[in-house]
Amino acid sequence: MASTATQVKPIVSIRGLTKRFGKVTAVDQLDLDVYPEEVFGLLGPNGAGKSSLIGMILGLVRPNSGSITMFEIDALKNSRRALLDVGAIVEDPAFYPYLSGRDNLLALARIVGAKKAQCDDLLELVGLKQKGSQKYSTYSTGMRQRLGLASVLLNDPKVVILDEPTRGLDPAGANEFRDIVRDIAKTQGRSVLISSHILAEVEQTCDRVAIINKGKTLKQGPLEELLTHRGQSEFLVGDTAKAVSIAESIGFVAGTTGNESEIRVNVDVKDAASVNAALVMRGIDVMGIQPAKSDLESYFLELTASAEDQTES
């Protein structure tokens, strides 16, 4: 994963991107970097500006200001060259209903100059080889998403952009789709930019995440970093009730976690030692200490709530 290697140049770099639709600002001074071979998640509620952002990256929506650089090419000035190595599904996969899955893929392959043989390989990759001659209009939602993914991979793009890719899929289908997406990044060496409002999906699939709301980036970074080092430590103790009162008596906010054998103390990791000493001195058995990991959902809600507060104040 190249995400933490700051010396690696981003493959997609967005700076100060703004898009207004009339009086509504859909994307507001947004900055974003996607590095090679990573799965980057755009996480935000419906209407956060994810699709508008993807639309601008793909040259479908004209930004009011800002810049998009892809493969060191100014994508706003030369979108044709910049998008040569990009495959994308925008909103839902869209194909001609009267053509078969294979013919749809062939049509797109002809336009982008991909080889005909690649279509069959891709149909096999997404598990549609047997159904390739069936009309697209007869495809289920899952099959449509798979065909969409196959079309995205035509011409071996270096960057794959998927807008809400598991929308409408059943849990098993969504899970399978996520596996394919991870495979695309990890074994085929592509960068994947995926937008979603499903937190679990982003958590399971992405290496780095940008949380956006009302067109602004609230937080951006590696998923691990976002979920840890947030000023909390977890202590595995024998007597949680007593441990909580001790931690609070020495000025730290503490509470038990779900399994009742751990307490979560609101301290920076470097202060964990003093809490540990206090607990041990008062006879509490401390079996373990670790930086607290919150789930993405609570972090997301926390971030969006504080953004709401700032807007109101």
Partner: peptide
């Protein structure tokens, strides 16, 4: 109406 326009243009087709 089919959305195929977006699909094609997102591949950098002028």
């Amino acid at each position: 109406s089919w959305g195929t326009l977006r699909q094609v243009l997102s591949r950098g087709i002028p």
